[in-house]
């Protein structure tokens, strides 16, 4: 059972998660738009990524405790986590029921975007492995919070405060995992395992953009 305080925090995070997500209209535009030239595609996906970051910042600002952190530490956390959080949210979008019938088109469009398949294949494998976990929305929201509040980001000064904040959300996430997946005691550990996978995307992201530009 969640404590009264944990229930309040979860409600707060969920409200923010549901409010600050990539608008369905934008996602549909990406998927259903007629064939675009590769330049248009580049500009469009860049705009989409920018919007992703803006929405992520709005979500993060409302995470209980975040605003009490030093301003430069806030930037260090967001800068360190934006790519990982973006891939996590993309995985949620990819696996969301509403998009199920469009995922083949989406996959084809991304595969044709000019990004090297060396980068694309692990991305889709990640989306699919996340899909197999059958995560509920609370888990996506809390895992995003855990990703953002990672205490070992570069340039972060007050690691201790961030660690405390992250632990708060990890405890709630563990309870939510047990509640929604009572037959799978490994579920919480598996979610955390996906975070390791996310880190590799973050490392490869700059290379991926460079290869895309070159193409």
């Amino acid at each position: 059972e969640l404590t009264q305080e944990q229930m309040g925090l979860l409600q707060y995070v969920m409200d923010s998660h549901l409010k600050h997500r990539l608008p369905q209209s934008l996602a549909t535009r990406l998927i259903l738009q007629d064939d675009m030239g590769s330049d248009d595609n580049f500009v469009f996906l860049t705009e989409m990524a920018t919007r992703h970051v803006q929405i992520l910042v709005e979500f993060t600002k409302k995470l209980p405790g975040f605003q009490t952190l030093d301003h430069e530490d806030q930037i260090a956390l967001l800068k360190g986590s934006a790519v990982e959080a973006m891939f996590l949210r993309s995985a949620e979008l990819f696996n969301r029921k509403l998009l199920e019938r469009h995922t083949d088109i989406l996959e084809e469009r991304i595969r044709k975007s000019g990004i090297s398949h060396d980068y694309i294949n692990p991305m889709f494998n990640f989306y699919k492995s996340v899909g197999e976990l059958k995560m509920v929305e609370e888990e996506y929201a809390l895992l995003t919070a855990v990703v953002i509040l990672t205490p070992d980001r570069q340039y972060l000064k007050d690691k201790e405060s961030v660690e405390k904040l992250q632990e708060t959300f990890l405890h709630i996430l563990e309870k939510i995992c047990k509640r929604h997946h009572p037959d799978n005691p490994q579920h919480f550990a598996r979610l955390l395992g996906r975070l390791t996978e996310l880190r590799t995307f973050s490392h490869h992201h700059a290379d991926m953009l460079m290869s895309w530009r070159m193409n």
């Binding site: 409010k19 580049f42 500009v43 860049t46 705009e47 920018t50 970051v53 803006q54 929405i55 910042v57 709005e58 600002k61 301003h71 806030q74 930037i75 967001l78 800068k79 934006a82």
Partner: peptide, 21 residues
Amino acid sequence: PASNLGLEDIIRKALMGNFDD
């Protein structure tokens, strides 16, 4: 254009402003 902004610029602007609208 957004494509010319770096990640840190986007984050700094978003932290100061409000993109809810």
